[in-house]
């Protein structure tokens, strides 16, 4: 787990909005309001490079730090394609919004959802490279007890196989780990 944590932007002093804070600091933000959006990268549609996508993830990361959360480092996820970060704490808001709501608000500022979908679809493998990675997925799933998957199986086929195993009471933790590792490379945003 990443050790470095950042904490930037508004200090905890500005969160209480109590009389003392008003007297000492001269005011604070209104309840539930996020800080003014800083200029930064944004995405709406079209091709996107990894650097552009990563700059949006980093902008969201900074936004969450500015909201008072203890954010861990931005890291490439286990899918080998996308980037993300985890966080803790309750932020410096007035408590009316949760961590996930604040994260979504930060993401919406920079268009992360659309950027992430577009980037995954752009980098999905094809040809011989895809066949090689598909063989790795099949081997991984086989080791996790999921059989019957071939290079012509669709994402839905793999999902169905894992789900049937789960319904049979088998622990599918390893199978979902396989899926997380290879699905994005093979199926883009639909995997």
């Amino acid at each position: 787990m990443a050790a470095r944590r950042a904490r930037r932007g508004r200090t905890p002093w500005a969160t209480g909005c109590g009389l003392a804070a008003l007297l000492l600091l001269g005011g604070c933000t209104q309840a539930g309001e996020m800080a003014e959006p800083a200029p930064g990268p944004s995405y709406s549609a079209g091709p996107i490079t990894e650097a552009e996508y990563l700059s949006i993830v980093r902008a969201v990361h900074t936004c969450m730090a500015d909201e008072g959360y203890d954010v861990e480092e931005v890291e490439r996820r286990t899918d080998g394609v996308t980037y993300g970060f985890q966080f803790s704490g309750s932020g410096t808001g007035d408590g009316s919004s949760s961590g996930q709501q604040d994260l979504v608000a930060c993401e919406e500022r920079y268009g992360l959802m659309a950027a992430e979908i577009a980037f995954q679809d752009q980098v999905a493998l094809s040809g011989a490279e895809r066949e090689a990675v598909y063989a790795q997925l099949v081997e991984c799933l086989d080791g996790a007890g999921v059989t019957g998957i071939t290079s012509s199986s669709t994402a839905a086929d793999v999902g169905r196989a894992i789900e049937q195993l789960d319904r049979a009471g088998v622990d599918v933790t390893d199978a979902t780990t396989c899926w997380n590792q290879y699905a994005t490379q093979l199926f883009g945003s639909s995997g």
Binding site: M1, P12, W13, S88, G89, S90, R160, I162, E163, G191
Partner: peptide, 23 residues
């Protein structure tokens, strides 16, 4: 205003799995 919670201790990890559709 101090944070109510710190992160999970070192050596612990959280792994959300990507959702998938079936049936």
């Amino acid at each position: 205003a101090a944070p109510a919670q710190a992160a999970l201790p070192s050596g612990c990890a959280l792994y959300p799995s990507a959702p998938y559709s079936s049936g």
